[in-house]
Amino acid sequence: MHVNTFDRYESRQSAIHQLDPRVKVVVTVLFIVANALLPDGAWLAFLAAWALLLFVSGAAQIGLGWLLKRSLIVGPFLLAAVTVVFTLPGNGLAQWQLGPWTLVPTDAGLLRFVSIFIRSWLSVQMAILLTATTQFPDLIHALHHLRVPNVLVSIISFMYRYLFELANEAGRLLRARESRSAAGVNGRSSSGGSLFWRAKIAGHMVGQLLLRSFERSDRVYNAMVARGYNGRLLTMNPHHMKSSDWQLGGVGVVAILLIQLVARL
């Protein structure tokens, strides 16, 4: 078993890949915040933001189809926003009878929903571009050298390193369970035992995982101490801002400001 949750890096030799990760993190966060600030129905600004996104993905040599497929993960989250279509006061567009309830979609609600949809979809794509063009360890460095608190950065770093081990361990436990839960003599219950039995085993497994992780954290801490760790985690900054980093970062920030301007004209 292997998890690739964090390994979304798409190796290319583009200018975007080579950009200092700090610039990428700052521009991405700015883009997302600025997006959230765009008013409903600012179609021209949405279009401009999308153009910026297309420009970046083009420069990064990341295919649109690939990006689109990845961006589908916003779907489930958008469901939460569907209710605004019916709850926002405005002119009713139709009347749907749903059992005892009458649903009235309003024009204002629809406008709000479509705007939310576009904003989150654009933001998610930019975040996907960030992880596709930056190795995860570089992201961690960027956070560290952008002065994100040390504890947070360490947690992200260890999570990245040990999520794989945890998943492997879970996989081993699952296999051990499967190999011991043969079907009964009469051939019933292929996955072994009653629901209650399986729930009990699952509980044990979670407990096991917790215990093993706890013991591992002890050993990892020993290994850190053995190499001189004394409570202050030091890392080297492998990146140096070049003039092209400043320039491209500047272009990104100006573009984001222009989009805000377009929305408010």
Partner: peptide, 21 residues
């Protein structure tokens, strides 16, 4: 267990950990 010894995301960072500290 080398998985306990190698706790950093990249090989470089792990080998640099001792000298850095």
């Amino acid at each position: 267990n080398p998985d306990d010894q190698l706790f950093s995301p990249t090989v470089f960072e792990d080998v640099a950990f001792g000298p850095l500290h």
